[in-house]
């Protein structure tokens, strides 16, 4: 039965059951939707930070781009997706605030606008996808507005909605 499953911050979920996977109110986080179109299997990761920096985070693999994507692909393969047939759509990575002189501990910067963490998330996601040779067939990233993503794991359609720019499908 089709359900709407909420994929919260740092979570990842897969479905072979035509479920809608949704992430609400993405800011600088990136929603990564990976699917096998013929097998109608898909998964969504709600990535929060670019890299785990070699730390082992088995409890929250969805938190970092470099751990979330291999983990998601692995879980998709386990429920029958074929790694070579996977496609991907990515949404998010916005810069919500511009604060001059903002510190960002994670980035280790003491100056500069909060280190454009959104853009760095997007870059890290793309690198991780490139490593696994998964093509990006749809993308809406950057800007300075929040987004909600609803990913149809059966069709691969990604509905993006925002307060300022309405709703459309990737």
């Amino acid at each position: 039965m089709t359900e709407m499953l909420n994929v919260g911050v740092a979570e990842l979920k897969v479905s072979d059951n035509s479920d809608i996977l949704a992430s609400f109110g993405l800011g600088s986080c990136v929603a990564v939707a990976i699917y096998d179109p013929k097998k109608k299997i898909g998964g969504l990761a709600h990535v929060m930070l670019p890299e785990s920096r070699g730390k082992d985070h088995p409890k929250v693999p969805g938190k970092f781009a470099d751990t979330a994507i291999p983990n998601l692909v692995d879980r998709l393969a386990r429920i029958g997706a074929r790694p070579k047939c996977l496609k991907c759509k990515i949404v998010g990575g916005a810069q919500m605030f511009e604060i001059p002189g903002s510190r960002n501990k994670y980035a280790g910067l003491t100056c500069g606008p909060a280190s454009h963490i959104g853009a760095r998330n997007v870059d890290a996601v793309k690198m991780a996808l490139e490593k696994l040779k998964i093509p990006i067939v749809g993308e809406e990233t950057g800007g300075n507005h929040g987004r909600t993503v609803k990913f149809d794991s059966c069709t691969g359609d990604v509905e993006v909605s925002s307060i300022h720019f309405g709703k459309h499908t990737l």
């Binding site: 911050v9 609400f24 109110g25 993405l26 800011g27 600088s28 986080c29 929060m48 930070l49 938190k63 916005a94 810069q95 919500m96 605030f97 511009e98 604060i99 001059p100 002189g101 903002s102 960002n104 501990k105 994670y106 909060a114 963490i117 959104g118 998330n121 300075n144 507005h145 929040g146 987004r147 909600t148 925002s162 307060i163 300022h164």
Partner: peptide, 25 residues
């Protein structure tokens, strides 16, 4: 306090930015 940043948007998007900026610890 630093100078302020301002946004009108989804609550989740604003919070997720703050969360990331905190280094998520």
């Amino acid at each position: 306090p630093s100078v302020p940043g301002f946004a009108m948007d989804m609550a989740g998007a604003i919070l997720d930015y703050v969360l990331v900026d905190l280094g998520a610890s």
